[in-house]
Amino acid sequence: MQRILNLIICTFLLVQSLFAQSNSSPLLTAEMASKLAAMPLHCIPNEWPNKTSHVSDTSSDHVLLPHELHPAFYGCLDWHSSVHGHWMLVKLLKTYPDLPNRAKIIEVLNNSFQPEKIKGETEYFSKYKTSAFYERTYGWAWLLKLDMELYTWNDPLGKQWYASLQPLTQKIKNLWTTFLPKQTYPNRTGVHPNTAFGLVFALDWANTMHQTEFTELIKKRSKEYYFNNKNTPAYLEPDGTDFLSPSLEIADLMRRVLPKAEFVKWINTFYSKEGISNITKQPVVSDRTDYQIVHLDGLSLSRAWCMKGIASSLPAGHPYKKLFTSTAQNFLKTTLPHVTSGNYGGDHWLASFALYALTEE
């Protein structure tokens, strides 16, 4: 417990010192990367507490432990958090190959990416009556993000782990290509089932992997879901447990789907003045010990990465470009010191959101 407390204090002081050095957007440093890596290093092998979200077929699988259901991704409270914790460690190794805790990171990742464990993860998605729906589509999205991170890493270990992950990656891709044509309506919530968030990561993966048919399917469905959306009700955001902005996730997707000139026309009618005013306000987090309320710290981070990306797709002089850039910086500076709040409800996942917000171009 004291070790964890010391880690939290060090991370908090590190982030504060980082902000004191610069008035620009916060930047990831090697020291900060090492401290952030400690969070998934702690939770990936930590089976408890755990929220399995498993739907039992019979009494025999009702009593299975998390590591029996999910031999690789059983820690960090839930499957998707474990997956993006793995993504985070891979990303940090790629960015800073000489991290002081490099050996520990490799040990943890190598243990997870054993072929037999990934085989067990893959089989889960076909083994039970409802397991094909498991983690749809948030966990699916992070699995493809992890796969893409490994694929784009020119490193022997990365290549080995990438090869091990392929049965699960292909399973997820096949589940998605089966589901997406049947998904008549998008999910517009600010939590896990959000369709736009999932399609952002899926599209990035499909483009990177030159999966032309999957790419075209995603673009087609994205346009069908969102192209004619106008005056989106962003003035109602957020709900009390949101960690994603429904409107910004859509815009972050459409900047990838539409040519730049067409995207500018689209976003000009997508938001109202009231909506823009609302999503640029800092979410209020009243209790970081509450596992649901602390989601709102994640909302600030995901808003930041969406705004950074959207701003990069807008021409100079567009009214949202400067506004989104400065708002993203403020969200990061205000929220990063709370990434390790000392409560597992945030500690098991927020560091991944922080890293993505810091490094996403």
Rank of each mutant, 00 (worst) to 15 (best):
A251P: 08
T52W: 09
I172D: 00
S131F: 04
K333Y: 10
E123I: 06
Y162N: 15
F113G: 07
P167H: 00
H70M: 06
K333R: 13
N229H: 13
E68A: 10
S326K: 15
L165H: 11
F324R: 02
L13W: 10
S247T: 10
V63T: 15
Y134C: 05
T232E: 14
A304N: 03
P319V: 07
M88G: 02
V191P: 05
T289C: 09
M307F: 01
W142Q: 02
P246A: 02
I118C: 01
G139P: 04
I172R: 07
A234P: 05
T189P: 01
L41C: 07
P45F: 08
D78L: 08
K91S: 15
Y128A: 02
S112A: 15
I276M: 02
K230C: 08
L332K: 00
A261W: 12
R255Y: 00
V285F: 03
Q183G: 06
N194Y: 09
G275W: 02
L323Q: 10
K230A: 11
L93P: 03
Y96P: 09
L13E: 13
G240Q: 14
L301Q: 02
P40A: 09
N229R: 10
K94M: 13
T137A: 11
A20Q: 12
L258Q: 00
T169S: 13
G342A: 06
L244R: 06
H192V: 06
I279G: 07
L69S: 00
I293T: 12
S60P: 00
S326P: 05
A202W: 02
D242C: 01
L314N: 03
R221T: 11
A72I: 06
Y225F: 13
G139M: 05
K94H: 13
K230N: 08
Y74R: 03
S277H: 14
D98P: 00
D147N: 15
S17Q: 14
N278Q: 14
E237D: 01
E262A: 09
L27C: 14
K308H: 10
S25A: 13
Y225S: 01
L143N: 01
P193C: 04
F227E: 14
A20W: 06
L5P: 04
E361D: 14
A328V: 09
V339C: 08
L143Y: 05
L93A: 10
E274F: 04
S352W: 05
A103N: 14
F113P: 02
P45K: 08
F133N: 13
L301K: 01
Q16T: 10
F12G: 04
T208F: 12
T289A: 15
P66Y: 01
T189W: 03
S22M: 05
H86K: 07
H348I: 06
V200Y: 07
T122P: 00
W161A: 00
I118H: 03
E149M: 09
V264T: 08
V200R: 12
H70Q: 10
P181W: 04
T195Y: 02
I276C: 07
D287A: 11
I250K: 02
H84N: 08
G298E: 09
L109A: 01
A103V: 13
D252G: 09
E149C: 09
M254G: 01
H295P: 02
A141S: 14
K171V: 00
K333P: 10
L244Q: 06
